[in-house]
Design a protein around this nucleic acid. Structure first.
Length: 565
RNA sequence: UGUCUCAUGGUGUAAUGGUAGCACUGCAGUUUCUGAAUCUGCCUGUCCAGGUUCGAACCCUGGUGAGACAACCA
């Protein structure tokens, strides 16, 4: 490459294939240069991290190309839908930082769709089929065997028209009649074998239209037409809809009356290792009480991640890292953890907490003396400032920060080895006391008064640094790490830090967690492990299943231990 | 024995006819007031076989492998 080209080449940002399509459409002058997308959830569950991937794309494309993105609830099946979900979906999208232009509901188009369908039937392109679901399924054939035509296929238009009207009055029981498009029972694409356009549902009222309608349009019909009504230019969806695209286009062609046409483009859905993302399974976890709700921190829902301490930025970072392609991928949960660490390391305030405390007594430190030690709130953000924490003769440290007989690479407290107490002094262990069962009760050590933080001697090299709380100044909290209840009988935080715990700050936390749940059929649910290292959002109203923990040093150890290494 | 889609290190992704690059993981080292984070280095890749071309991850042909499709779900 010669010198002239370098300047042009350098800033070139690689596009994902969808952006490339959009740019090509723009270049071709399609749809008058308009860009419009939509995020079309069915309100039948809470949004999860997989939806976040779609949301970032739908809203992101609109933002990047000066277009608009609407929120549309695909509420064509009242059996599964509920306003609870409508509300939570809106909340979660907003939390992610996106603003839709308009909110639409597929149910808003029921009348329009109905009128269109009447015309469609009059043209002889659809018929009412009165066969049972089983019969129809049988006649459909298989992917390799052509289907057979329904005996009702060529019934008079007037008859279909009259029956279609009846389908919506309530006199037709569910399952007795459906409206089918007359296409091709021998098509190699199963979706063309006279697809169902309308079915009767009168067992459940619709969450918005109540009992006004008894006949409801199916996805394949309603979705494309909704896109068309709204002026969507790029209808982005996941790979499993690839086979539906020809039908999507077919229905558009039947009704379109201008040059404008929406275009469906598919991308790969998010598959996260160790993570259950099926709405059906998540619903089961909620209904059977295996989790505290859709926002249980172990859930991969947006609200669960929010409670777990993920920030919208962290989720955006993660989505940016994984990309959009045409093939199924397995995304490592580690990548998501990396994204959240990257973000929260810069923003989360740290506090001290001891989970499994053991008393550390500094034998040469004056009894009754209390020194206030200054410590930083966030080592990666000077603006976060400092706070003071009380230091005294008797402290608590983490039980596994001490080993009487330590292996060579153990950098924490062990007899004869000097370590730093974070923001305080260097101490050297002299001895320890054990109870009759050999359980560690107290550790004794001596401090070096010349090594207080900030003093010249504090620059001396030590291998290890430990966190601690002052016994007399600490408070006890009952904390739960996900499914594990840690009842800390001894104080777990100094007073100052305990107040921090009640602040709505993101805090680091250790979250080793494995859940095994059983499904109704007795088969074990995929063993899933929601998070190894995580962060927690602590809010004042929260129940005590929150834990603050400022140490990351031993995470690798504890994880290795769990793996039996 | 159909139709559609896809195939790049362990994983995730770039390169769209012109030097296979980036990130995560792993390993090694560095640094740090907690072994995290940071920083550095290393390892590892174009599914196979032909063809077109000066040149192929990319275009063509044929294999192989994977996923989606047979809900009155979306």
């Amino acid at each position: 490459m010669n010198a002239e080209n370098i300047d042009e080449a350098a800033p070139k940002k690689s596009l994902n294939f969808i952006e490339a399509f959009v740019e090509q459409d723009l270049k071709d002058g399609k749809n008058g240069g308009r860009i419009q997308t939509r995020f079309p959830p069915e309100p039948n569950g809470y949004l999860h991290i997989g939806h976040a991937k779609a949301i970032c794309l739908d809203f992101g494309i609109a933002d990047n190309y000066g277009g608009i993105c609407n929120l549309r609830f695909d509420d064509t099946n009242p059996v599964k839908e509920d306003v609870e979900y409508v509300d939570s979906i809106q909340e979660d999208i907003q939390w992610l930082g996106y603003k839709w232009k308009n909110i639409y509901y597929a149910s808003d188009y029921f009348q329009q769709l109905w009128d269109l369908t009447i015309e469609f039937i009059k043209q002889g392109k659809a018929y009412v089929d009165e066969q049972s679901a089983e019969t129809i399924a049988k006649q459909k054939g298989t992917p390799t065997v052509p289907g057979t035509e329904s005996p009702y296929r060529n019934r008079p238009v007037e008859e279909s028209l009259a029956l279609f009207q009846k389908m919506n009055t309530g006199e037709v029981p569910e399952g007795a009649m459906i409206l089918r498009a007359k296409i091709d029972m021998a098509s190699s694409n199963m979706h063309f074998r006279d697809p169902i356009m309308y079915r009767v549902i009168n067992s459940h009222p619709h969450h918005r239209t109540g009992t006004n309608w008894k006949a409801y349009p199916m996805y394949d019909y309603a979705h494309g037409q909704s896109d068309y009504f709204e002026g969507v230019t790029h209808s982005l969806c996941t790979l499993e809809f690839e086979v539906h695209r020809p039908l999507y286009d077919w229905f558009i062609d039947q009704f379109k009356d201008s040059d404008y046409r929406p275009r469906q483009i598919e991308f790969n859905r998010l598959n996260l290792t160790y993570t259950v993302m099926s709405k059906r399974k998540m619903l089961q976890l909620v209904q059977e009480g295996l989790v505290s709700g859709w926002d249980d921190p172990r859930m991969p829902t947006i609200c669960g991640l929010r409670r777990r301490g993920y920030s919208p930025e962290a989720i955006h970072n993660f989505i940016d890292k994984i990309g959009y392609t045409k093939f199924e991928a397995q995304n490592d949960i580690g990548l998501m953890e990396h994204a959240v660490r990257e973000n929260l390391n810069k923003t989360a305030a740290r506090v001290n907490a001891v989970i499994d405390p053991v008393k550390l007594i500094i034998t040469n430190y004056p009894e009754g003396l209390v020194e206030m030690m200054e410590t930083v709130n966030n080592p990666e953000d000077e603006a976060a400032g400092t706070r003071e924490i009380a230091f005294s003769r008797e402290l608590y440290i983490e039980r596994d920060d001490f080993m009487e007989e330590a292996p060579k690479k153990y950098f924490r407290l062990t007899p004869g080895q000097e370590v730093r107490l974070k923001s305080a002094y260097f101490v050297k262990c002299t001895s320890c006391k054990r109870d009759a069962d050999g359980r560690l009760e107290e550790i004794y050590c001596e401090y070096d008064p010349m090594t207080k933080s900030g003093m010249p001697d504090a620059n001396r090299k030590v291998k290890g640094t430990l966190h601690w709380v002052s016994a007399a100044h600490s408070l006890t909290a009952e904390v739960r790490l996900y499914d594990r209840l840690f009842s800390v009988e001894n104080p777990s935080a100094d007073e100052r830090d305990f107040r921090d715990l009640l602040n709505p700050n993101s805090l680091r936390v250790l979250t080793n967690c494995q859940v095994e749940a059983s499904l109704k059929n007795g088969k074990p649910l995929d063993q899933f492990q929601f998070q190894r290292i995580g962060y927690f959002n602590v809010d004042p109203d929260s129940t005590p299943d929150k834990l603050v923990f400022n140490r990351t040093a031993s995470l690798k150890d504890s994880w290795a231990k769990e793996q039996g290494k």
